[in-house]
Design a protein around this nucleic acid. Structure first.
Length: 798
DNA sequence: CGAGAGACTTAGTAACTAGAGC
DNA sequence: GCTCTAGTTACTAAGTCTCTCG
């Protein structure tokens, strides 16, 4: 890893550049240079501006070339150097291996009973002389930065002045995506080639890159919206009087093929190039990925400016497909402390739009996107102190709800039967938010956004009374699209024990809903008197700081804790393995995820994978039947020559090896793009062949090349029984969980301290339930005792 | 008081990568 | 040692909630 200080932007930034009140970047290149530069060969990856000093010497080395071309040449050189070193290392390794084998052969040739070389006499171990402190194990810069961040325990540090988030803050600003480099591949209109300007070509390329079977174009309804929006923006780019008028006549096939080819070229990347790319990525990361806040290193969450493209709104978003424009530095605001040097604008000839020094907000950068006119922010990462503090106080607030929940439930229980309709609606909504864990559901403009709802915006059409035609039941089917257009579809039985015992008031809620829906149109609001602010204001009166979303956090955390406690009470709990305990934890997690309606869409690939497992399972079952028949032959003294034999696999194996070797060779030798594409194609073919060979092997795995013995057959039957059992369990698990997303509740809803305490009580390593990033995000929660409980008292900590 | 700006949290999906399994 | 898959991370859309302003 390069440790030169030119890639450390922050600590040395202040020292390196004089503080300037107005931000200006390097002088703008003459406008005529821009299109010319675009036509130049594209650098392999994000071009890192070289030092001025180096540029001068390079300019002498390559007279007549532009800076970009020089940078490109230099990069190529470096890649070649890497490749050379790698080749050399391989050669040496091979040589060493050869020598070792030769020696081995020599020993074997001498009859195997060779005389061992007399062992060299061991030198007496030198007495270590302590020369100073032990040298730390070599670590790379990323690791050292991670250690530095870990060393800062914000929960022990003094807090900034009231209302302020920080006292000093400096950072490297946002990184911008590379300028668009035209590929020159034409689109066709009505069978004819169309010339496009780089800007138009870029837009056409966005469309060409869309997955035809993806979530936008794969669905006829959304595809129509997407294409309409795209084409409107595209036509605006083409200008008035342009021959392109009808989307149906547009053909982007050539461009999509070109994109496919580019992907293949990228796949055929050598190890040297991979290393080079990683190095470049690291450098950008060091430059923009860290901030210094009140003297501590903090990780930045998002420092890459969102690149232009098509807007991918979810569900039936009315604006999906519109072109998301490229954001220029002039549109971006930077926020940092006044005494620090401003981040350098990385785009030559441009400057930041505005400079702020506002310590009351967390954001480092801010810009507006052109689709919905919404603000976007550059912020610190989830593991930072900013996020950690707000996360902890979120969970503590939810814990305080433990001590207030009885009072709140009493309050809405009383109001459920109030004479005032508004009060009854308020109480009913509170019941829904508490018991069904729905979001509050703010008002939405369906011309601008997808039509999704939450509690306050529920409409009559979302409720079906008596869906099962059972007049005695108090059942209601709730069906609507929630956040991210995720379907919520549940039949609520208000008469069930779940909603009637412990002051559940299920029957009353059912009555209220019936009452609120009568005499209304389908498109009318159920709670016409209620808004999120009325609801939240009321909640605030019951408990300071309380809002609707706290109920989701509270319910998720309490549910997790209760479910875990239930599991830990099982008699044989202590004898369970760590893996079994983790499975139990995941089961509890799943209950929370279902409560919060956290879903994921099953992708085509996942669906195919499931089908493959099912097919394999079917094969195994068939094979077991065959094995049983063979065993019968033994038992009944039948003709053993009838036992089917395994066909030779050698030929196929050899073909596969040959194809794979050939593809590898092609990949290594590929220089031009055409060769790289050919290599990737050959590789795909070889892998296909290998898969076929694997399938064929699997289909006769139960057989033998020679006649088996009875015990061999019996053994195999036992093996197959176990295999079938394992595979069906696996399939069932995968099928049950394919649509539930466990991650969201783990990241946002369940108090991490409950998980940490569970792990400590049960000697489950924390990394079995929290990934690296989650452990970093929840670093403040790691020190709790095994007895820790999610309760009112812990909420009083801050 | 309501609308909307502004700030921050919550969310699913696409892309990437580590490590289990052959 | 290599591949494939499951788990993880990056990305950015879509919510909630507070505060200000007219």
């Amino acid at each position: 890893m390069d440790d030169s200080d030119d890639d450390i932007p922050i600590a040395s930034l202040t020292a390196k550049i004089a503080p300037a009140p107005i931000i200006k970047s390097e002088p703008k290149p003459p406008p005529a240079a821009a299109p010319a530069a675009a036509a130049k060969p594209k650098p392999i990856d994000g071009a890192i501006p070289k030092k001025v000093k180096k540029e001068v010497s390079n300019a002498e080395k390559y007279p007549g070339l532009t800076a970009d071309e020089i940078a490109y040449k230099e990069k190529l050189k470096e890649i070649k150097r890497f490749a050379k070193i790698e080749k050399q290392q391989k050669k040496e390794k091979k040589k060493a291996k050869k020598e070792k084998e030769a020696k081995k052969r020599q020993r074997e040739d001498s009859g195997g009973d060779f005389e061992r070389k007399p062992k060299k006499e061991k030198k007496p171990r030198a007495i270590k002389v302590e020369t100073g402190p032990k040298k730390a194990k070599a670590t790379d810069k990323t690791q050292r930065l991670a250690q530095a961040m870990k060393a800062f325990l914000w929960w022990n540090a003094p807090t900034p002045p009231e209302g302020q988030q920080w006292s000093t803050m400096e950072h490297g600003g946002v990184a911008f995506p590379e300028e668009y480099v035209p590929h020159g591949v034409k689109m066709f209109y009505d069978g004819k080639e169309i010339d496009l300007t780089p800007e138009q070509e870029e837009a056409a390329t966005f469309m060409a890159g869309m997955d035809k079977n993806g979530m936008h174009l794969g669905n006829p309804k959304t595809a129509k919206i997407f294409i309409n929006n795209f084409f409107t923006d595209f036509k605006a780019l083409l200008g008035r009087g342009h021959p392109v008028k009808d989307f149906a006549k547009c053909d982007f096939k050539r461009i999509s093929d070109h994109l496919e080819e580019q992907k293949m070229v990228k796949k055929a990347i050598t190890d040297g190039e991979k290393k080079m790319n990683k190095k470049i990525k690291d450098q950008i990361n060091f430059k923009h990925g860290y901030a210094i806040v009140d003297g501590h290193i903090e990780k930045v969450g998002n420092f890459n400016m969102e690149p232009p493209g098509t807007f991918r709104g979810r569900g039936e978003h009315p604006k999906m497909g519109k072109i998301k424009q490229r954001v220029l530095p002039e549109q971006v605001f930077m926020n940092f402390s006044v005494e620090n040097a401003p981040p350098i604008c990385p785009v030559p000839g441009h400057a930041w739009g505005e400079i702020r020094h506002d310590p009351c907000v967390q954001w480092l950068g801010n810009w507006k996107e052109n689709i919905n006119g919404q603000d976007k922010y550059m912020q610190l990462a989830a593991m930072s102190s900013f996020k950690g503090k707000s996360d902890r106080s979120k969970y503590n607030k939810a814990a305080r709800l433990c001590g207030n929940i009885e009072k709140i439930r009493k309050d809405y229980k009383k109001n459920l039967t109030a004479k005032d309709k508004a009060l009854r609606q308020l109480a009913t909504a509170m019941w829904v938010i508490d018991r069904l864990a729905l979001r509050v559901g703010g008002e939405k403009d369906t011309d601008e956004e997808a039509d999704t709802v939450g509690c306050c915006s529920l409409r009559v059409e979302h409720m079906t009374f008596n869906p099962n035609n059972d007049d005695d039941a108090l059942e209601v089917e709730l069906e609507f699209l929630g956040k991210d257009s995720m379907l919520f579809k549940q039949t609520i039985d208000f008469g069930s024990e779940l909603y009637t015992t412990n002051n559940g008031m299920g029957e009353q809620v059912y009555k209220n809903f019936k009452n609120f829906c009568t005499g209304k149109k389908k498109s009318d609001d159920i709670f016409e008197t209620l808004t999120p602010s009325i609801l939240n204001d009321h909640l605030k009166n019951l408990m300071p700081g309380l809002s609707a979303k706290v109920f989701r956090t509270y319910n998720a955390s309490v549910t997790l804790q209760d479910e875990l406690a239930k599991k830990e009470k099982v008699e044989n709990w202590d004898s369970l393995t760590v893996t079994q305990k983790v499975t139990n934890y995941n089961d509890a997690n799943r209950i929370v995820a279902i409560l919060c309606n956290h879903q994921r869409t099953v992708s085509k690939a996942q669906e195919t994978a499931l089908e493959t497992i099912q097919a394999k399972l079917d094969t195994l079952i068939e094979q077991k039947k065959v094995l049983k028949k063979i065993l019968k032959l033994f038992n009944k003294g039948g003709d053993l020559s009838l036992i089917p034999k395994k066909k030779s696999e050698t030929e196929m194996k050899e073909a596969v090896t040959k194809a794979l070797e050939n593809a590898k060779k092609m990949k290594e030798e590929a220089k031009s793009n055409e060769e790289k594409i050919a290599a990737t194609k050959a590789d795909a073919e070889a892998k296909k062949l290998r898969k076929e060979a694997g399938d064929s092997k699997f289909s006769q795995a139960h057989l033998w090349e020679n006649q088996p013995s009875e015990s061999q057959v019996a053994n195999k039957i036992q093996q197959w029984t176990q295999k079938i059992e394992r595979m069906s369990m696996d399939l069932k698990n995968k099928d049950d969980n394919k649509e539930v997303s466990l991650g969201t509740s783990k990241i946002n809803y369940m108090d991490p301290r409950a998980t940490v305490a569970f792990c400590k009580r049960n000697e489950v390593p924390i990394d079995r339930v929290f990934s690296r990033t989650l452990r970093d995000k929840f670093n403040w929660a790691m020190s709790v005792t095994p007895e820790w409980q999610f309760c009112y008292e812990i909420g009083l900590e801050d």
